[in-house]
């Protein structure tokens, strides 16, 4: 991963963001739902963020497993970066989901399937960040274990949420598949934009973790050589 890639990705994401926001409000048609109407526009960001949440979590889970087995710090850096980015995307998913719920059903929180899944996944990620912060020298192993177990648990969460009738069902099914072509185009453009943004964030977080390690090493070499005493 090179340093140069990050500004390029971030710039592309910025351009993509401007373009999608323009298209969302001008090109994409309004839905013919009397309640949703204009509020439906948040869908382009909400679902794109949800995709990134699951993608970044999967990357974190896989890297965590590889880290546990190999103990190579680079996998740990990548796992940490994707977990933090996933937690951030997750927070956006939950916030936009609540706005959507308020607009559609006049209630801030509904136990809609995918929203519930996002919430449960987000709890794992928050746990991950807490462990990183408070588990001292065992933090990397513990967090990797949590990420691995959490990622393996995703299918269980899926089937659980699907089969559980604990919460009243709400929401529409299979939104992306049934969209009219204009909406579909804008939607996938938005997904691409946030993918670029997500990768840029993860890469820069990895860079900062790596820089921190290098700085430590240089300082230690200085101390070994008898400097700063």
């Amino acid at each position: 991963m090179s340093n140069k890639g990050i500004p390029v990705l971030a710039a592309l994401a910025a351009i993509g963001f401007v373009v999608t926001i323009y298209l969302v409000f001008t090109y994409a048609p309004l839905v013919e739902d009397p309640v949703l109407m204009f509020n439906q526009k948040i869908f382009y960001y909400h679902v794109a963020h949800a995709f990134m949440l699951f993608l970044a979590t999967a990357v974190c889970g896989v890297c965590s497993l590889v880290f546990l087995k190999t103990r190579k710090p680079k996998y740990d850096d990548l796992a940490l970066a994707s977990a933090e980015v996933a937690a951030m995307f997750g927070a956006v998913v939950l916030a936009t989901g609540m706005i959507w719920a308020k607009a559609a059903w006049d209630i801030w929180w509904v136990w809609e399937k995918r929203l519930t899944m996002s919430l449960l996944l987000w709890l794992v990620l928050v746990g991950y960040v807490l462990v990183r912060r408070f588990a001292g020298s065992s933090a990397d192993r513990l967090a990797a274990g949590l990420a691995a177990f959490g990622t393996v648990g995703i299918p269980f969460i899926y089937f659980m949420v699907d089969a559980s009738d604990h919460h009243p069902k709400a929401g529409a099914g299979g939104v992306a598949a049934t969209l009219p072509p204009e909406m579909k185009l804008v939607f996938w453009l938005s997904v691409l934009t946030f993918l670029l943004w997500c990768v840029a964030l993860v890469m820069s977080r990895v860079q900062s973790a790596r820089a921190e390690r290098e700085l430590r090493e240089i300082r230690e070499r200085g101390l070994d050589a008898g400097l700063f005493t």
Binding site: P73, S137, A139, D140, E212, R213, R216, E217, E220, D224
Partner: peptide, 10 residues
């Protein structure tokens, strides 16, 4: 041996 960025053995 490193614990995170902390060096225990060099």
């Amino acid at each position: 041996k490193r614990y995170g960025t902390e060096r225990a053995l060099g």
